[in-house]
Design a protein around this nucleic acid. Sequence first.
DNA 1: CCAAATTAGATGCATTTGCATCTAATGCTA
DNA 2: TAGCATTAGATGCAAATGCATCTAATTTGG
Lengths: 153, 153
Amino acid sequence: MAARGSESPVRLAAETWESLFRAQVAVMRKLQSGPAFRKLAVNEYDVLFTLSRCPSGWLRLNELNDNVLLSQSSLSRLVERLEKRGLVARMPAPQDGRGVLLKLTDEGRELQKEIGREHVRDISALVGPALTAAEQKELMRLTDKLRNSLGKR
Amino acid sequence: MAARGSESPVRLAAETWESLFRAQVAVMRKLQSGPAFRKLAVNEYDVLFTLSRCPSGWLRLNELNDNVLLSQSSLSRLVERLEKRGLVARMPAPQDGRGVLLKLTDEGRELQKEIGREHVRDISALVGPALTAAEQKELMRLTDKLRNSLGKR
DNA sequence: CCAAATTAGATGCATTTGCATCTAATGCTA
DNA sequence: TAGCATTAGATGCAAATGCATCTAATTTGG
C-alpha cells in the first residue's frame, strides 16, 4: 500500500491542508473552551489582538477584515458591538471619506492584555509539549511561507 | 532586535500558533469563496467528507463532533438539515440507545465526490505553488504530530 | 440491584452570521 | 471634468450558531 501523501502532488497538497486544518480545529477547540474566553468570543478577542499589534494604533476596517475569517457585514457588526462595550473607538478615515479607522480604547487594551496573558499560557500548554522548539520554528516558517505566498496575488 | 520567536518557549509557542492560525484563515478564506461551496457550506461539506472517510460507513454523532469546530447542538441541527436534503441517513446506535449513527446516502456520496474533486483542485492550486513537496510533507508531519499529542489526554 | 451521576442527543431561545442590497465616496476613462 | 465603475461600510432579513436545558439511556458506586 502506498504511503500517505506519496501518490501525487495534488493529493499531497490536499492531505497537507487536511492535516493543517484538523490541527487547527483540534487546538482551537481546546482554546475556546477554556476560561480565557468567558468575557469575549474568540473572533472578538482576535480583533482586539490585531488592533493591539497595529503599529500606528489605528486600523482600517477592511484591513482588519483580511485577518479574520468573517464576512464584511459580520465584522461590521462585531465592531459595532465592541464599540458599544467601550472596547474600541471609531474615527472616519482622514484620506478616504468612505473609510473607518479603529483603535483600542484603554479599557479594550486592558481586556486584550488580560485575556492575552491567559490565552498565551493556554497555547503554550498545548503546543509546548507537542513539538520541540526546533519543530515549532520550522512549523512557523512553513505556515508563514504558505500565508505569504497567498497574499502575493 | 531579537529575532521573532527567540524570546522564550512561551512566546515561541504563541507565535507558532499565531502563524498556523493565520495561515489557516488565509487559505480557508480563499477556499470558501470559491465556486466549490455554492451548494454546501464548508462545515456541511466537512461532515460529508468525514463520513466518506469512515471505514465502516457509519459514524456516531459525537465522534463526528470531534472533527468539526461546532457545538454539539449546532452539529445536531446541521445533520438534521443534511438529512432533510437527503444527503445523510440516521440510524439508532445498536449498542447504545442514546446514540445515533450516520452515513452518507448515495446522493450524499455523489455530492461529496463532486465538491471534493473541485475542492482538491483549489487546495492544490493554493498549497502546491507555496511549498515544495518536501516542505508539504514536513508541514503535514508537524501538524499531525501536534494534533496527535492533543488527543492523548 | 438500585440510586445518583454521567453521557448522547434534541430543543427553546437569544445572539451571531452571511447574503443581498443600499448609500456614499473614490477612482477611472473618455 | 462628467459619467460610469469600483470600493468601503451599513443594514434588512433569513439562516446558522451557541448556551442552557431537557429527556432518555447508560454507567458507576454503594
